[in-house]
């Protein structure tokens, strides 16, 4: 069987999805609190910037992949209005349930679907916009998932991938210290699960850097790809345009 990465571990492809599911089952209930703690609240600014770049219009059809606790889906649903649709989707049912409850508490009703990004259950050319925040890193076959997202986009549609990336050279040492010392400590104290947060730090290092991900998106069906570095490259927003 072909192998892949689970953090720094090399594992069989068949077991990665299960182990990723284990991580997210474990952290689902404290995911939002941990996001605020780990990023010092910056994840809100990164998502706000993503929404600004998305520039969603009333009536548009949007798919939010790996939507989890629904931060983006909630904001997108308010922007597309009653004539538009936002599909809230995730492969992890525990995360999707937390997100769906949060959306309902906010008075927003959107379709929530458990689905695998590598085999999206949608017709070709269905959506104006696909968003994916902090999810691509965990996918076993990133190329397949990106090709699927290109398939379901209309010509001229855009894919927005918000993901951890390669930090700028001067920040690298401090960032490593933070990732491998502070994050697992926070995970142990707050979420009582340091292993999941060690996986987070390791999986970020194994994820393609900005240029590599851009090349991967281009080879997966996007005619043009830009990326926007944020916080010195701690995260990057890749924007892929599907040409007609």
């Amino acid at each position: 069987m072909t192998s892949t990465h689970f953090g720094y571990e090399t594992v069989d492809e068949g077991t990665k999805a299960e182990r990723v599911r284990g991580v997210f089952d474990s952290v689902a209930q404290r995911y939002d609190v941990m996001n605020d703690l780990m990023s010092l609240g910056l994840h809100r600014a990164w998502k706000a910037y993503t929404l600004m770049v998305a520039n969603v219009q009333q009536g548009q059809q949007v798919l939010d992949v790996a939507s989890g606790t629904g931060d983006l889906a909630l904001a997108l649903a308010r922007r597309v209005g009653p004539r538009g649709v936002v599909v809230h989707s995730d492969i992890n049912e525990a995360m999707l349930r937390v997100g769906r409850d949060r959306l309902l508490d906010a008075g927003v009703v959107v379709p929530s679907m458990v689905c695998d990004a590598e085999a999206l259950p949608f017709a070709d050319n269905r959506f104006d916009l696909v968003t994916l925040a902090f999810g691509l890193r965990n996918m076993t076959h990133k190329d397949l998932a990106l090709a699927e997202m290109a398939r379901v986009l209309k010509p001229g549609g855009r894919l927005l991938v918000l993901e951890f990336s390669r930090v700028a050279e001067p920040l690298r040492r401090a960032y490593d210290l933070y990732s491998f010392r502070v994050l697992p400590f926070l995970g142990r104290v707050v979420a009582r699960d340091s292993a999941s947060y060690r996986y987070l730090a390791e999986s970020i290092r194994m994820h393609p850097a900005q240029q590599e991900l851009k090349a991967l998106m281009q080879s997966s069906g996007f005619g043009h790809v830009d990326y926007h570095n944020m916080s010195g490259g701690v995260v990057a927003l890749h924007v892929g345009l599907k040409c007609g």
């Binding site: 005619g223 043009h224 790809v225 830009d226 345009l241 040409c243």
Partner: peptide, 8 residues
């Protein structure tokens, strides 16, 4: 110039 008519 990329196929979308943008630059890289």
């Amino acid at each position: 110039v990329t196929p979308a008519g943008l630059c890289e």
